[in-house]
Amino acid sequence: MIDIPYRSALIIGAGAGISGSLTRLLREAGIAVVVAARDIGKLAALVNQTGAIALQADAADATQVERLFAETEARIGAPEIVIYNASGRVRGPIAELDPAQVEQAVAVSALGAFYSVREAAKRMEPPGKGAILLTGATAGVKGFPLSAPFAMGKFALRGLAQSAARELAPKGIHVAHIVVDGSVRSEHRADSQDNTLDPDAVAQSYVDLLRQHRSAWSWEIEIRPWTEKF
């Protein structure tokens, strides 16, 4: 098995689910990890468990993203892995949605990803090495009723990933979009195990991407529970 060829990681939009599982796997592999969120108080248990560093940032704010990357670089060096896990959701009939709330939701899902990819590319292009993984959703492939803002943001995210992959892969930077097609299991959900995604298994799929040889990079993968219809 090819070892993970990176030594530092920044996870943006971190929480207890996929991000928590990813943090544990990366730390077990000896990789320094910074986890970022608007509310870093929710990351205290993860930080205590793994030794990861928590930094506060609003991904929808370009200035805060710039600062986040600068602070990450000062703490663990320029991140060789950047994982964007943030997303914004607003539900409701299109005719009744608040434009300001829609703008914020799309900003988190799409613009925040752009700000993050931009900062990552600045640091990864000179050495010609790095990986950028963007967490997508079923909504980025097909839009559902009452969920237009989420679909708008995730469709934009997928387009960003495809464009960035084509631009940056020839420069040695692996860009991949992960379509998470299903609900992620948590201790707070009552769903049966067959109907939900195990966050540890999802995180393993991310790590498998990081281990890919550059002669066989994937730009997109879909992961879903085995009972999920598609």
Rank of each mutant, 00 (worst) to 15 (best):
A29Q: 14
S192P: 08
L22H: 04
E80L: 01
K142I: 03
I132R: 02
E66W: 03
A52P: 02
P126Q: 15
S21A: 15
A176I: 12
G143Y: 00
T63Y: 04
T63R: 14
R189H: 12
T196A: 15
E220L: 10
P127E: 04
D98P: 15
V106I: 15
Q64L: 08
V108F: 05
G13V: 02
G13T: 03
V65L: 05
E125A: 12
P225Q: 13
D198E: 11
R91Y: 13
P126A: 14
P126V: 11
W219N: 11
R118M: 08
Y84S: 01
Q104W: 08
Q162L: 11
G140H: 06
V141D: 07
F144K: 14
S19L: 01
K171C: 03
L43Q: 11
L134K: 13
A16M: 05
H174D: 03
P93T: 11
A164E: 11
S87D: 09
V207K: 00
S218W: 13
R89G: 02
S116N: 07
K42Q: 15
R7Q: 14
V35T: 12
G41I: 03
I4D: 02
D191Y: 09
E187G: 10
A176P: 08
A165F: 14
I83F: 11
I223H: 10
G15D: 12
A156P: 04
P93I: 13
S205P: 00
A131M: 00
D200G: 05
F155D: 05
K129Y: 00
M1W: 02
A169Y: 03
E80T: 04
A59C: 14
M124E: 01
E96F: 07
Y115S: 00
D181Q: 04
L22I: 04
R7T: 14
K42W: 08
F230M: 11
I223L: 15
A32M: 10
G143L: 01
L26S: 01
L46V: 09
S109K: 06
R224H: 12
A131D: 00
A9Q: 04
T63C: 03
V82Q: 00
V180L: 03
G41H: 07
E222M: 08
V202R: 02
R214A: 12
E220M: 15
G15C: 09
G143W: 01
R118K: 15
